[in-house]
């Protein structure tokens, strides 16, 4: 089919100026599309930076929001949201990381090909479940009857992290040369010891990359937390047994507010979130290229 359209195209040599013009136009369209993509990023980042930078100060990170109509001096921070995000994302990472690595080890080192295909398809499906549905699921599983909690929020985020961590670990496990495993096994080292102390250490860089990317992804997730950890007070709390405020949920609530002062704080919080995500993605990308290069040259 491709050869058919090709011969037709190349035989039509008489229309050369027109074909050249079409080619030019299409190249221009591609250039413009790329420029538009970069411009959108620039505009969004610039909007957040310009509006957020003014309100970005230490108070944002260290002080809690003022209670409406309170007589105490005005405190205009979001310290509770930053603390809550740290706790919830931290616990989610502790939940998802070991399970994700074990899933990857099982699929890459032990599972039969048919099992491997089936389970990795399931992981892709889990990855594709909309975040809002994860929120409904955790609400029904943990919140209904028990109330909102930071733990429930962590579990929701862990559901999103799990396929990401498992997939990135699998990718780097497949890069570890088979000869390394064979050498270890030939020396009489059992399979479990080969996996844990020969194969796994080679993949640390890749696992760290995958984890950082997963953390960067869930740090900005709002939808799963909306029903499971959002009814939090304005005081600073580190206790995951109760609902904790988080940065994305705070941005979401402030963005729906009618008060421009709330918008300013939303921009500032968005700027902090964006800086965190951009730096961790760039760091992870740098680490990934390093790991991949090392593993592919050692092959």
């Amino acid at each position: 089919m491709s050869t058919h359209s090709l011969t037709k195209a190349s035989l039509r040599a008489e229309g050369l100026p027109r074909r050249r013009a079409v080619n030019r136009a299409m190249e221009l369209v591609a250039w413009l599309a790329a420029a538009l993509g970069v411009a959108i990023l620039g505009v969004v980042v610039w909007s957040v930076a310009r509006r957020g930078a003014g309100a970005l100060n230490l108070d944002l990170l260290t002080k809690t929001p003022s209670v409406a109509f309170s007589l105490t001096p005005v405190k205009q921070g979001l310290a509770n949201a930053f603390a809550g995000s740290l706790v919830i994302v931290g616990i989610a990472t502790l939940m998802a990381l070991p399970v994700g690595i074990l899933v990857a080890i099982y699929l890459n080192e032990f599972a039969r090909p048919s099992v491997r295909t089936a389970v990795s398809l399931t992981l892709d499906v889990l990855n594709g479940v909309p975040a809002i549905v994860i929120g409904i699921f955790v609400y029904g599983l943990l919140v209904l009857g028990h109330g909102q909690s930071g733990f429930a929020g962590s579990f929701a985020l862990a559901c999103i992290m799990l396929p990401l961590v498992a997939r990135s670990t699998m990718e780097v496990l497949t890069l570890v040369p088979m000869s390394l495993r064979e050498a270890s096994l030939a020396l009489g080292v059992p399979r479990w010891r080969t996996t844990l102390s020969i194969v796994l250490p080679q993949t640390i860089g890749g696992i760290v990359t995958g984890t950082v990317l997963a953390v960067a992804r869930v740090a900005g997730e709002t939808a799963p937390l909306l029903f499971v950890s959002s009814l939090a007070g304005t005081s600073l709390s580190w206790d995951p047994h109760h609902a904790l405020q988080t940065v994305p949920v705070a941005i979401f609530e402030l963005s729906e507010s009618a008060d421009p002062a709330d918008h300013t704080r939303a921009w500032a919080a968005a700027l902090v979130l964006l800086i965190f995500i951009l730096f961790s993605s760039l760091g992870a990308r740098w680490l990934a290229t390093r790991t991949t290069r090392r593993l592919s040259t050692s092959r």
Binding site: T222, A270, L274, S281
Partner: peptide, 15 residues
Amino acid sequence: LIETLAAIPSVVIGL
């Protein structure tokens, strides 16, 4: 840069 655009959280795009 294009992949960075994908990393921006939806709540920030919404804001």
